[in-house]
Each structure stands twice: as C-alpha cells, then as structure tokens.
C-alpha cells in the first residue's frame, strides 16, 4: 500500500516503537502503516465511514470532535501528536495547536499552503477565492475555514515559543523542486512541520 506523500514524510520522522496520536486520522492508513514498525497509539476521527474503516483495519480509533480539545489525554503522554491536512478545518487552530503540544512531546503538523503562487494568483489577479487540487471546495461549502501560509504558521509557533525541528515542503506530486527550496512559501503546496515545545 502506498501512503499519501505527506503521510510518508510523517512516517519517516517517527522512530520505531514510538507512541503516537493521529488527529483526524481518516481511514487509519498512517497508523496501520506505523503498526509495522511497532509504533502504537490512537487515531481520532469524527466521520462515520472513515471511523468504521479504521475499525475494519484493526487501528485503535476514538470517535471524537477535535474542536472539543484533547482533554481526555494526559499531559506529555505521546511521543508525537500528528495533525495532517486538518489544521485548516478546525474552529480554533491556535487552541488545538496548544492542546497538541500539551499532550505530545513533539507535534507534526501538515497543512496546504495558502501562500502558494496559484492561490495568490487566483485571488490577486483573478479576484476569486482560490480553488486547487489541495483545496478543491468553493468558498461557501469548504470545510477549510482557517487557511494559512507557511509564514503565518511559523509566526504562530514563534508566538507560543515552539521550535521548528524539521520542515518539509513539497508540491502536490510530493516533490521538492528547486523553486520550493528557494521560495517555499511561494512554490510549496503542502507543508509538514515537526515542532517541539521550546521550554522542555
């Protein structure tokens, strides 16, 4: 089974036998993949059919709404807390980010970059809300209600004192091009960050 590219990046960052929490874990593909390396943990998922897919593939999954926070989890109880392609869909990304760094020793956050040149072009020149492969919905029915750019995210991390330990920026073919290396906020479509609570 081939993993979605951002999930492959995340998987590469997690060492064997770690304990992880995957927020908005979808059909559980990442957790299933990680099981092979003795990585334990749980997924959180609210969607009924994705939830059942997790159960059917033998992945631990808790039905929960991320907007309610992570109060069921103890402080620093996971090696990694993962939030992939979901940050932009929650009601309060700032609140969830703080919850992630409370329960996890490290956080792995992946999101679509709203600073990509196509987004900028569609809004700046076309005067319309951007629609792309990563953000396919129209403005009125999109679940992606809190879009941000790489710069925005890094600023928020900075504000909370979180250190960025690693960053991977790719296009939607999950390739890292010369342009992305030079100007990631302009050419990167998907960003994945590994962050650490600077205080500990």
């Amino acid at each position: 089974m081939t993993l979605r590219v951002d999930l492959q990046i995340i998987s590469d960052w997690i060492p064997d036998s770690a304990h992880v929490l995957d927020l908005g874990c979808g059909n559980g593909a990442l957790l299933k993949h990680l099981q092979q390396r003795n990585i334990t943990g749980y997924g959180l998922e609210i969607d009924n059919s994705k939830f059942t897919e997790c159960i059917a593939s033998g992945v631990n999954v808790i039905q929960a709404d991320l907007d309610a926070g992570l109060s069921q989890f103890d402080d620093q109880s996971f090696d990694f807390v993962i939030l992939s392609q979901t940050l932009q869909a929650v009601k309060r990304p700032d609140f969830l980010l703080r919850e992630i760094m409370r329960v996890g020793k490290q956080g792995i956050i992946g999101f679509p970059n709203f600073g990509h040149w196509q987004c900028r072009f569609q809004l700046g020149m076309g005067g319309k809300m951007p629609v792309s492969k990563n953000l396919p919905n129209a403005w009125f029915d999109t679940p992606n209600i809190h879009l941000c750019t790489l710069k925005d995210f890094e600023k928020l991390c900075d504000q909370y004192g979180y250190r960025v330990l690693n960053r991977s920026v790719v296009n939607h073919e999950h390739k890292d091009t010369f342009g992305i290396r030079l100007l990631p906020n302009l050419f990167g479509q998907i960003a994945v960050y590994l962050i650490h609570n600077g205080n500990s």
Binding site: Y42, Q63, Q72, F73
Partner: peptide
C-alpha cells in the same frame, strides 16, 4: 463509557470508542 475509555487511554491500552 468515556470514563472507561479515558482510563484505558491513560493506561496506554489498546482501545477504540464509538458513540
């Protein structure tokens, strides 16, 4: 039920929960 789930989570046990 969540009281049970949360205890199992805290203890790091293998658990799934559906409402």
């Amino acid at each position: 039920s969540l009281e049970i789930v949360n205890a199992l989570l805290s203890a790091g046990k293998s658990v799934s929960y559906a409402e």
